[in-house]
Simulated assay, not measured.
Amino acid sequence: MVQTEIKASPASRALRLFADWGIAETGASTLGELIEEIRDSEESRPEWDEIAKIPLSELSNSDQSIQDALERWATGLREIERSILWDRMVPAESMESLQALANEHGVAYATAWSIQEALTHKLAKFVETGDGVPIRRRTRIIRTTIGVAMKEETANELLDLDPGTNRFRELLLRVAGPYCRDRGWLVLDEMRPSDPTEDLVQSVGENERLNERLVSYRLERWGLEPDKHWDWITRDPRVREFRGKLVRWGNTLGDQAVLALSDLGAPATSREIGEYLGDDIQPRSMQVAISRDPRLVRSGPKLWGLRSWNLPEYLGLAHHMREVLEARGEMPIAEFLEFMERTYGANEPSVRAAAEKAGLGTAKGIVRLRDDAKPAPRRRK
């Protein structure tokens, strides 16, 4: 009589304790009879409670079943096909290169590659036969669990697919999908062309924010479960979570300044922009970047805004002092100082220092343009 092998694990210990209790306390002689005894009993038995908690995956020796199925199938293969199967598709240790196998069997690399491709198709057909049931069941579980895509680390943990311990990992992923690797994820190869990530990244407006409702809608239509959406879209290096929002993170400081100003909604200094971005950006580097970016406009002595806001461009304090008085004629000094600070952020010492250059004169508490002052130049477009 062949004794059924149970994997050495906490599950096997629980099963032995359950069997010992059954033999000692009941008249059952088989597992089926013992389960019937438990079902008919109103008492709670700790031995049964332990058994009931065991995951089926711990009782299943699926790897051995897959090994047996492949061994039966391999008996009908040619020698080079068996080498490709055991040394490349399901290597016990390191994977052999196809070139090395080609050399070993005295064939060209292209021939070995063709044999490997044909063997993959043969395997797919075998899996659908009665002898291929162990592989078919395992790959269906993999396909159902991973779906369109899943983080590789998560899949390894959920499906016992650790590359260091499961020699059938690559074969199972090939048959189940095939699945390919992409930035730490396993992705169903046939679904990659319809991945909406690129469209979503390119669809952002000037505010650099992704439409999160559209992201969820498109990814769900693609087949990705909602709890994976955020992680999937941010795996793209161009997308980040920034202050609780999904944004397209530009490669240049100018791109990032546009993002910060869009989020702030008001002009800011280069230092404020850098601090808002929070990436330890040097104010001088930010100042240089934004002064060269055509999407940004200087709106005050130290302030920058988006050109799309249609802000008046700041052309220097003296210029704007002349411009104000050309429009208004003359103003009380206190009112003029208050206006320049409110509108351009210029304090009183700065205004007084620029008065000579601006061609301003004062008398009896009134500020006006001197007769010899040149008119303010026209604004740049």
Rank of each mutant, 00 (worst) to 15 (best):
T129K: 10
A100N: 10
I141R: 14
S44V: 13
A69I: 06
L259S: 11
L101S: 07
E190P: 01
M191H: 14
G177Y: 07
S114G: 12
R13M: 00
R39Q: 08
L56N: 04
F18L: 02
H319K: 05
V324Y: 07
R221Q: 11
P193W: 03
T154G: 04
A318T: 03
P294K: 02
S41I: 06
P46Q: 06
L303W: 03
G106N: 09
L317C: 04
I6H: 00
Q67S: 13
A118E: 13
A24K: 10
Y344P: 03
W304K: 04
G345F: 05
K122V: 02
P91R: 04
L159I: 03
R174S: 04
P55R: 01
A376F: 12
T26N: 04
W304M: 06
H320K: 02
E338K: 12
R16F: 04
A8M: 00
A373R: 06
L70T: 11
L56C: 02
L77Q: 11
S97D: 13
R295L: 07
E341G: 12
R137H: 12
T120K: 15
G76A: 07
E33C: 13
N103A: 10
V127R: 01
L246F: 10
E81R: 14
N310F: 09
Q202S: 15
R379A: 10
S114Y: 05
R298P: 09
E335D: 15
M95V: 10
A108E: 14
R136M: 05
N156P: 00
P375R: 04
D199Q: 14
R218N: 05
P46W: 08
P196K: 04
G244N: 02
W222N: 05
E58N: 01
I6C: 03
E81F: 14
V201N: 08
W304N: 06
A363E: 15
D182T: 05
A14E: 00
T343A: 15
R183V: 12
L70K: 10
L303G: 06
A112F: 02
V288A: 08
